[in-house]
Nucleic acid binder design. Structure first.
Length: 427
RNA sequence: GCCGCCGUAGCUCAGCUGGAAGAGCGCCGGACUGUGGAUCCGGAGGUCCCGGGUUCAAAUCCCGGCGGCGGCCCCA
């Protein structure tokens, strides 16, 4: 028996890290004043149709006909479009509406390293504000979230759809810039010379290619990028550059945490303004998050209104993969756990009571459920990650004094249960 | 969707010049009869990915699927 391609079981050590990441991200979203909103895993096909772009729509969305109703459904492809659907049908919402959601999404892709058909996204959105404050808040909450789960080297790359439009369509007179942008987007992978030769290969003339190469080198810290942009970009682009300047001024600054990158494009159709992509420096990993402004999307889903919106998602499973594979996080999350060991089978009920006593004090406690020998209990306790062993034998029961063994140091103390609980709690 | 490598026990793999399915670890039990992450002993567990072909005989050779891992495309 196996699970479908691209799906997987997440085993205890990894699942524990995953839950920790979720807890931490939740706390972080709440810290910024975002509200949870849960939307269903399944939407009507027509809700998702026409929102993402041709490729996603034709190949990447899980889509099926329910045999009972004969209606077409789809598994959600991201958390953004369902949010837009919700907002579109709730005109009474006070604005701005700030929400977060952490949940699974499904994409019909070929699985690969850190790429799955079912994965978890943590999404933050702000609906109603057309201002850069909203974009900056989304970027800040996402960056801080990534840092707080242990990816202290996470940073964001920022670009602007209107700037891309201005530069490539208006200035360079490229009718359909998408294929060109796809090539440009590979800059990090294949380098400048690779981009140049590919551009020439698809038939662009040399002077345009030279111009593009010049432009896409504009990336890095905003201060320097801004200077160059103002030199190179014509009059019509000034407004966008001003907007970006204001956006960057609001983003949690740290030397390397944010940069401008004119070569960064992003695939989803619904983006209209600033776009973001989150990466980590230290490891070879695909992006751990992405987002941007999508001012037209809610209008697509409502006949009566349109609202500006912006948001960003974290790829929770990619974060977990990086933590587990590259940063050895599995053992970092071990907490105190007392394993209560009964020395004779017939004493198990006493041990049982003691385990409950500890749990009622908020102390993690475990007890053998297989009526095993003391030696086996001890062995299992150690391999289960217990930090303390508590022995329950006839002598202990008679005197109400118990021996607590601390695994890491090998030290033992003998004391009453209340004292043992206090000792463990302070550990 | 495309290209490459791989597919034998829960895991890591050996066996593959075709000739009765193996090891280590893990798991379960026992011994050492109260605090040894030790040692020793025993046990369970496999349609050798699936289907077809070649052959007296296929885990082993051939073909096709499926799946995993890397990469392309794309993305979180």
């Amino acid at each position: 028996m196996s699970v479908p391609k691209g799906f997987r079981d997440i085993e205890p050590d990894v699942a524990r890290v995953r839950y920790k990441v979720i807890d931490e991200l939740r706390r972080n979203y709440e810290l910024f004043g975002f509200n949870p909103l849960e939307t269903p895993a399944i939407e009507y096909w027509e809700t998702l149709s026409g929102k993402y772009g041709e490729e996603a729509e034709s190949k990447l969305i899980w889509r099926f006909v329910d045999p009972f109703s004969n209606r077409e459904y789809a598994l959600r492809y991201d958390l953004t479009v369902p949010l837009a659907r919700y907002v579109a049908s709730h005109p009474e919402l006070p604005l701005p509406f700030k929400r977060y959601q952490i949940g699974l999404v499904w994409r019909h892709e070929e699985p690969q390293r850190m790429r799955y058909r079912e994965f978890m996204q943590a999404d933050a959105d702000i609906v109603g504000s057309p201002y850069v404050e909203a974009d900056a808040e989304v970027v800040n909450v996402t960056l801080k979230g990534l840092w707080s789960v242990g990816l202290s080297d996470a940073y964001v790359r920022i670009n602007h759809r209107k700037l891309i439009y201005h530069v490539f369509e208006k200035e360079l007179q490229i009718d359909n810039p998408l294929p060109i942008l796809r090539i440009v987007d590979k800059l990090d992978k294949i380098g400048p010379s690779g981009v140049e030769s590919e551009l020439l290969r698809v038939g662009m003339n040399e002077s345009t290619v030279r111009r593009i190469m010049e432009l896409i080198q504009i990336r890095g810290r905003w201060g320097e990028a801004e200077e160059q942009l103002r030199k190179v970009v014509s009059q019509g682009g000034v407004e966008v550059i001003n907007e970006l300047a204001e956006l960057f001024s609001l983003i949690t600054s740290s030397d390397r945490s944010s940069m401008f990158d004119l070569s960064m494009v992003r695939g989803l159709d619904y983006y209209t303004g600033p776009i973001f992509e989150f990466n980590v420096e230290s490891t070879v990993a695909p992006s751990v998050g992405g987002g941007g402004r999508y001012d037209g999307l809610i209008g697509l889903l409502s006949k009566k209104m349109d609202l500006p919106a912006t948001g960003a998602s974290i790829g929770v499973d990619r974060v977990v993969d990086i933590l587990v594979r590259e940063k050895q996080a599995v053992n970092a999350y071990r907490e105190v756990k007392v394993y209560v060991i009964y020395l004779k089978q017939e004493l198990y009920k006493h041990a049982w009571e003691i385990a409950m006593f500890l749990r009622n004090k908020g102390i993690r406690a475990e007890i053998d459920l297989m009526r095993r020998s003391e030696a086996k209990q001890r062995k299992n306790a150690l391999s289960s990650g217990a930090t303390h062993l508590l022995f329950v034998g006839e002598k202990e029961i008679a005197t109400s004094m118990y021996t607590l063994y601390e695994v890491s140091s090998g030290q033992r103390i003998t004391a009453g249960l209340e004292d043992i609980a206090k000792h463990v709690q302070s550990a």
